[in-house]
Simulated assay, not measured.
Amino acid sequence: MATESKEGGLVFHPMDQFIVSPLGGDGPVAWYTFTNAALWTGLAVLAVFAILVLGTSKRAVVPGRMQSVAELAYGFIYKMVEDICGKEGVKFFPYIMTLFMFIVCANFLGLIPTAFTPTSHFAVTVVLAFAVFITVTVLGFVKNGTAFLSLFWVSSAPLALRPVLAVIEIISYFVRPVSHSIRLAGNVMAGHAVIKVFAGFAALLAVSPIAILGITAMYGLEVLVSFIQAYVFTILTCVYLKDALHPHH
């Protein structure tokens, strides 16, 4: 959390919580090493399974807590997909629902003290973002053929501006996975780092009440951010899917 320096002051290491390390000790990390990142990623998958499969297995008329959470999440994401993508996009609802549930579960599990947050690493968010990018691009060409390229041609703009706008549209399209991944990982990482800094200040007796209030406020904010970032990632996925289904400006 915070360590004493040789000069007597406190030295904070807020980024140490993002280090990927082997479970049960220190050492090099190879492709086969079971790490803290692998553990908490697996726990996030198990949490999704527990909520969506085990929580709804009884299908009670009067739902319990787990079934209520699953039904609320189902209805929330289904309406989002239907409103943005239309009826045609509903067939992709399972994929989008899985994305949302994994991200939100990973974010919330990362708020447990001493936990590891997989979505704070670009290695995770980049894979998720590129999976969306490749899926949307392939779907766009399969469904529309070369007509998918009309996504980059703004026919409503003046003819002289269309080539310039086409270049801008192409660049913005290929930047999508970068912004999609950085937005999620950056916000999660920043929030956890700030909480760690406040936690370090709590070691100082003179400012500990202020630090505790800061930690409480930041923790409450991070709970909100954990949901909002999962929502933003999902709604952007729906917007990109809509472009693939209906590319015409």
Results as ranks from 00 to 15, higher is better:
135 T>D: 09
220 G>C: 05
4 E>R: 13
48 V>M: 04
133 F>R: 05
142 V>T: 10
32 Y>L: 10
87 K>Y: 13
151 L>V: 01
14 P>D: 01
164 V>F: 15
144 N>T: 06
54 L>N: 08
35 T>M: 00
179 S>N: 12
31 W>K: 14
71 E>C: 04
175 V>D: 12
129 A>T: 03
216 T>E: 11
194 V>F: 06
123 A>T: 12
175 V>N: 14
243 D>H: 13
89 G>K: 05
67 Q>F: 01
144 N>D: 07
68 S>R: 09
71 E>P: 03
158 P>D: 06
98 T>N: 12
185 A>K: 05
161 L>S: 12
164 V>E: 08
113 P>M: 05
138 V>W: 06
11 V>Q: 12
29 V>P: 06
228 I>S: 13
23 L>M: 14
184 L>G: 05
154 V>Q: 10
143 K>G: 07
149 L>H: 06
179 S>F: 15
112 I>S: 05
120 S>K: 10
101 M>F: 09
235 I>N: 00
4 E>D: 10
233 F>R: 04
126 V>D: 14
119 T>I: 10
92 F>S: 09
104 V>N: 02
226 S>G: 09
248 H>Q: 03
59 R>W: 09
82 E>V: 11
94 P>I: 04
188 V>M: 15
81 V>R: 00
77 I>G: 00
179 S>V: 14
130 F>M: 15
113 P>E: 02
129 A>R: 02
186 G>W: 03
52 L>Y: 07
108 F>W: 13
91 K>W: 02
62 V>I: 11
142 V>K: 15
2 A>W: 06
246 H>C: 00
27 G>M: 08
77 I>Y: 03
73 A>E: 09
216 T>V: 13
